[in-house]
Amino acid sequence: MLPPLYPPTGPSTGPQSRRVPPNKPAGMPLPAFQIRKPLARRANLWLTQAAFLLPLLLWCAISYLPFVWHPKVDILDPGSVDYFQKGMQVDRSEFREENAKQAAAGGHPATGTRANPVYLPAPHLVAKALFTAFRTPPLRDGEPWLHQSLGHSIRIIVLGFLLSALFGVPLGILCGTFALVSRLSEPFVDFIRYMPAPVFGALSVAILGIDDAPKVAIIFIGTFFQMVLVLANTTRSLPAALLEAAQTLGARRRQLLLNVVVPGVLPLLYRDMRILLGWAWTYLIVAELIGASSGISFFIYQQAKYRNYDNVYAAIIIIGLIGLGTDMALKGLGRLFFPWEKADT
C-alpha cells in the first residue's frame, strides 16, 4: 500500500519562518482602531453623542469640582481687609496673602468660597439663560429682544448669501466650463479673495450708509469671491469622459452646459454652498459691528458689557444650534434633491 500523500503532522518542524503567527494580526490592536474602516451604526450614534457629552462633562468638572480649577475666591466676609468687599472676586493667591497679613497683624481674616472667574459660568446657569433667553426683556427700553436680534442676523445672512449665490453660482460654473471666462475673471477674484472682508467695512459704510446695506455687502464680499473659485474648481472636477460621451450622443454646446455640466456638478456645488454658508456666519460678526451695531453680535457685546456671561454663552450656543440645524436640514434636503448621490456625502 502506498503511503498517504499528506501524512498527518504535528506542529511544524519545518524551517522556522519569521512570519507573524496567524492569531495575532500585526498592527491591529483593537477593532475600534482600524485604519479607514467604517464603524457599526450603533457605535456611530454613541460616538456622536459622546462628541457633545465629553466637552459638557469637562465643563461640568471645571464648574462643579472646586479642586479642578476655581482660581478665584468670592468674598463672603471681608474681615479686616480694607479693600475687600462682600461679593468681590479676587485671586486665590491675593486672598491668601491678605489673610496671612491679617493673621500676622492680629485682624479678622476674610472668608470666601472658591469660584471660577465670572467669564466661565456653570452649565446650569447657562442652561437657565437658554431657557429664559427669549422671555427676558432687554435691560433698557429700545434695545432689541434676543429673538429680534437673531431675526435681524438671520435676515442679513440670508440676504447676503442669496445675493452672493445669485452671481457666484453662474459665474463659478462658467469659470469651470469656459477657459475664456476663467482667465478673464479668476485672477482678479483670486486677488480680492486675499483681502479680508472686514477691510471693506469702512468703505461700505461710506458708500451704503449705516443701516443693513453695508452689512449685507460684507457678507457678500466675504463669500462671493471664495464661492466663485471653489465652485469653478468643483465644476472642473466633472469627468471629461461624461462630456465626451454626451458629445457622441449628439449634444451641442448649450445642451452640454445645461444637460451635463450643471446636473453633473449640482450635488457637489450644493455641498460647497453648505460649507460656504458657515463662512457667512463668520463674516456676520464683523458685519454687525460696522455702522449701527445690530443683531446677535451686538446682543453678545451688550450682555458681556453687563457681565451677563451666562447670556453670552447662551447666545453663542444658540448660534451653534442654528448653524448645526441649518446644515443638517440642508443635508437632508440634499438627499431628497440628489437621490443618485451615495449616502456618504
Binding site: A241, E244, G250, P263, P267
Partner: peptide, 24 residues
Amino acid sequence: MVFQEYTLFPWLTVKKNVMFGPKM
C-alpha cells in the same frame, strides 16, 4: 461610442440615460 470607463450619467436613471440621445 462606448468607452471602457463607465460613462453613464449618474444623475439620470437608466431609462433617462437611454433617452438622452433622442432628447438631444
